[in-house]
């Protein structure tokens, strides 16, 4: 293939913003969308020789992107199903989710500390960075159900129905999410000595 004229290259690049919005609308995940667009642009640059000009360049690019998007959607669904399966299996272990926090006599293994003026944290930018990090560390399913329950304020029953799992497994996912988030904030924010300028 002869070298791509700079003009043609720039023309392809000029559609990147549109392609990104297209991918984002379908995938609803900026990282996946970015990936799809990069793969589509790469395929377009390699296959530009087969572009016959009968459709517009944008239409041609979009048709390539569509394949990449479907591909990534399939991959994401498959990965999500696998991740959820792992969570569901561990959720099904009877009461195991709470036992790790308590000894045989039912006492806290790691006693919850008193958090010093937690509401003051709500005013601090760095607290929200810690909060987001802790949210991000939750297992995928737990993060999803917690976000819907607490951030979006949905009813537990509706969330559990959408997840397609039993109410008890769904509640355990929420319990785990709360315990994990609490522990993460205690370790990463409230456990520290308060410092000035934070």
């Amino acid at each position: 293939m002869s070298q791509l004229p700079a003009e043609r290259y720039a023309e392809i690049q000029s559609h990147q913003g549109y392609l990104m919005r297209y991918a984002l609308a379908q995938l609803r995940d900026s990282q996946l969308a970015e990936e799809a667009v990069q793969e589509a642009l790469l395929a377009a640059l390699e296959g530009i020789g087969s572009f016959d000009g009968r459709s517009s360049l944008r239409t041609w690019l979009t048709s390539i992107l569509r394949f990449k998007v479907v591909d990534l959607q399939r991959r994401a669904v498959k990965e999500r199903a696998q991740a959820d399966l792992g969570e569901k299996v561990s959720a099904a272990v009877d009461e195991g989710w709470i036992d790790e926090f308590f000894d045989e006599s039912g006492h806290w293994r790691s006693p919850p500390q008193a958090w010093n003026d937690p509401d003051a944290a709500l005013e601090q930018t760095r607290f929200w960075q810690a909060f987001e990090q802790c949210l991000g560390r939750l297992p995928a399913g737990a993060g999803r159900v917690f976000f819907r329950r607490e951030v979006m304020g949905d009813e537990t029953a509706a969330i559990c129905q959408d997840e397609g799992i039993t109410a008890s497994n769904c509640w355990v996912m929420l319990h785990r999410a709360r315990l994990a988030l609490r522990g993460c904030l205690e370790r990463n924010w409230f456990g520290r000595e308060p410092a000035d300028g934070r």
Binding site: W108, P112, P118, W128, F131, E150, V151, M152, L181, R182
Partner: peptide, 24 residues
């Protein structure tokens, strides 16, 4: 008081989530 701490922390998680939802 340990469980009281835990209870207050769960309340705080809820408040923080509502703040977060409001665009914090």
């Amino acid at each position: 008081f340990l469980c009281k701490n835990f209870s207050l922390q769960l309340d705080f998680l809820h408040r923080a989530s509502v703040f977060y939802a409001a665009g914090q």
